[in-house]
Simulated assay, not measured.
Amino acid sequence: MSAEPALNYARQIATSNKSRAAIFAGAKSVIAEVGNYQSNISDIALRSQVSKATIYNQFADKAEMVECLVESEVLRLTAAALAAPSRQAALEILSISISQDLALRRLVETDPTDVAKLVSITDHPTWLLVHQSIAKIFGADSAACGLILRWLIGQIASPITQEESLAQSKRLATSLFN
Rank of each mutant, 00 (worst) to 15 (best):
S39D: 00
D141H: 10
A14C: 06
S120P: 04
L176D: 08
R11M: 02
Q100A: 11
L7G: 08
I148D: 10
G154F: 05
I121W: 11
N8R: 09
L75N: 06
P85N: 06
L107V: 12
T15R: 14
N8P: 00
T15P: 13
L91W: 10
I93V: 13
S19G: 07
G139D: 04
A6T: 06
N40L: 08
A84N: 07
E163N: 14
E73R: 13
L94T: 02
I98V: 11
R150T: 15
R47L: 03
N36F: 15
Q12R: 12
I13R: 09
R11F: 00
P159L: 01
L69W: 06
A22M: 05
V50E: 04
V108H: 05
L104W: 00
A32H: 11
S175F: 11
V115C: 15
Q88W: 02
E67D: 09
T174L: 09
A81G: 00
K52E: 12
L149V: 01
A53D: 08
V70S: 10
I153E: 08
K18I: 11
I160K: 11
F177W: 08
N178C: 04
L102Q: 14
V130K: 01
I13K: 05
I44L: 07
L77D: 04
R47G: 02
A14H: 03
S86Q: 05
K18P: 07
A3T: 15
E92S: 01
V130P: 00
L129Y: 09
Y9V: 01
A27G: 00
I13W: 07
Y56N: 02
V66W: 03
R20T: 14
E4A: 09
N178T: 15
L77H: 06
A80G: 00
A63I: 03
V74E: 02
K136Q: 12
K136A: 12
D61K: 14
G26K: 07
A79C: 01
R171P: 04
I156W: 12
E163M: 13
L82P: 03
K18F: 12
L129M: 13
V66K: 12
G139F: 05
S99N: 05
I96Q: 11
K117F: 03
D43I: 01
A80V: 01
D141R: 09
L82Q: 07
